[in-house]
Each structure stands twice: as C-alpha cells, then as structure tokens.
C-alpha cells in the first residue's frame, strides 16, 4: 500500500505552552486505510488531527519542526484552501461546523460545493447522491438547527463527503450521540471505507474501533506508544496502562486466559469472541467426554 499521509520527525509546541506536545513524532498512514487514533483525553489526539489537516502550522502558529506531507506535498507549502479540498474535517460538535447561513439541510450540504464554484446542476446531482448515501433525504427541507444531535452529525458528515475529499479526518463524531445516532454515523464511515477513502478517526468506543479499523495508533502524552493492526494493539494489556480501554471482548479473552481458560487467540470483535469461545467450549466437551 502506498503512503498518503507521512509525518516525519514532527516536533511541535503551542504558542503559549512551555513544553512540546510532540517531540520527533513519525507516523505513516496508507491510502484507503481507516486509521484510528486512541489514547487518554489530553494525549494529543485532536492536535494530531490538526497537524494532518494542516491547521497546524497554518492556523495555530507555535514552534513547528519536521515534515508533514499529504500525497508527497508538504502541508507547509499548501494553502488552507488546497488542504481543505484534499482533507475533509468533521468536527466533534456538529453545531460548531454548521455554517449558520443555510435555512435547509439541502442548502447546508450544498454550501461547500458552492464555495468551490461547482456548476449548479452538478451541485444538485452531488447533493442528491450524498443525501441518499447518508440517509438524510427526509431531512432535506428541515432547518439544521432544529435537528437532533444524531441527525445534525449526519448532516455535518454529508456536508464534507459531498466535496469528495480523498482523506476524512473525523474527531470523536459519536461522543454526544445516542446508540442509534452512533450506529448511523458508523454506517456512513463504513460506506466511505468501501469507497476507498483514507479515514483518520478519533473515537473512544473501542468495540466499534475494533470492528472497522485497519490501523490503530495509541498515543499518550504526545508519544506514539503502540501501533499496529486491531489484533496487535487491541489485545495488548499495555493499552490499559496508558489510560485507554480495550474492547470488552478482548478484556474477556485476557481474563479467561489469566484464569487458565486458554482461547486460540484474544478476540477483539463480537464475532471473534463467539467463534473463539464456541471452539473452546467444544474442545472442553470433547476432552471431558473421553
């Protein structure tokens, strides 16, 4: 797989801070992968998102060293406008993202394309497509500010997706949503993954991360402390020591192992847990029968 986001020896300090948030941090994210950034609050997850989308160093100044490239181009050399076309950023709080100038969901979702100078008939076509994809057609004439949090988060996602950025950076999209809203957001993320978009996701719900991620990056105190696939990172008890949860299924598997009930592998998803425990129970039944 070909790298799309490359961070090399990044050292960064916020303008008024007295210490670096990152020192010599390096990270490669490949095209088409869903990379989840996990770690305790305050570890630097949102700052890393801001580095990837070029908000650092373009908007937040401070002491910035090292190189961040998107598709081989240094973010320092790109303008905020160029970066925005390549990288769509979905805010944690959709109320912060909504433009406030649109009276309807349809207008809100059109806003980005209008600013890009896309032709009107093309805008209508693309907005229709995205409304269908994100299942918000029924909300098209509603005022964005009259929607529930879950509905508004889908509008926020649609407003970004419609611009067809290659990379999506999504910062805690579900922390204020109910289970239904959370599922709807992940349904959209899944569809973006199928469209081979590169997705950088910050999220606390580990069971969902385990379900969808290709690549996990655990950061704590500004350092990448673990990195790898779901199976590599989300079965590692070290994650807990870094103030971060593991999926319930991994916690179960680890605890069973500790009590001498060895599973073939530590499961991270519900399906893996079902398969592993079924196999374990069958094996034990056979052994007892003999």
């Amino acid at each position: 797989m070909e790298p799309i986001i490359e961070i090399r020896n990044l050292t960064y300090r916020y303008p008024t801070a007295d210490k670096n948030i990152f020192t010599n941090l390096s990270l490669t994210i490949h095209r088409g992968e869903l990379c989840s950034i996990i770690g305790p609050n305050g570890a630097g997850k949102t700052t890393l998102c801001n580095v990837i989308r070029g908000f650092i160093p373009h908007f937040y100044k401070g002491d910035f060293q090292g190189n961040v490239t998107i598709d081989g181009k240094n973010t320092k050399d790109l303008t905020i406008g160029e970066l925005a076309l390549k990288i769509g950023f979905v805010f944690q709080n959709p109320f912060t993202q909504i433009s406030g100038v649109a009276d309807t969901v349809f207008e809100e979702v059109s806003f980005g394309l209008e600013n890009m100078g896309v032709e009107a008939s093309k805008i209508r076509e693309r907005v229709e497509e995205v409304l269908a994809l994100t299942k918000i057609e029924s909300l098209r004439d509603r005022n964005p500010f009259e929607l529930s949090g879950g509905q508004l988060q889908r509008v926020a996602l649609a407003s970004i997706i419609v611009m067809e950025p290659e990379i999506l950076v999504i910062d805690e999209p579900t922390s204020q949503l109910d289970p239904e809203g959370t599922e709807e957001v992940f349904e959209i993320i899944k569809q973006m993954k199928e469209k081979k978009k590169t997705i950088v996701l910050v999220e606390h719900k580990m069971e969902l991360i385990a379900e969808y991620s290709d690549h996990i990056v655990l950061i704590d105190d500004g350092k990448i402390v673990l990195e790898g696939s779901c199976e590599e990172v989300l079965t590692n008890e070290q994650v807990l020591k870094h103030g971060t949860l593991l999926p319930q299924f991994a916690m179960l598997g680890l605890e069973m192992n500790k009590q001498g009930m060895r599973l073939g592998r530590i499961p991270v998803t519900e399906k893996q847990a079902r398969d592993e425990i079924t196999a374990f129970l069958e094996y034990r039944r056979r052994v007892t029968d003999v």
């Binding site: 305790p40 609050n41 204020q176 606390h204 949860l245």
Partner: peptide, 12 residues
Amino acid sequence: DEPTAGQDKMGL
C-alpha cells in the same frame, strides 16, 4: 445526565 459521554478510562 449522560455523564460518560466522551470520557476516557480514567474519567469513567
């Protein structure tokens, strides 16, 4: 009201 929203392990 929704005390766990956005909380990490330590927060929980």
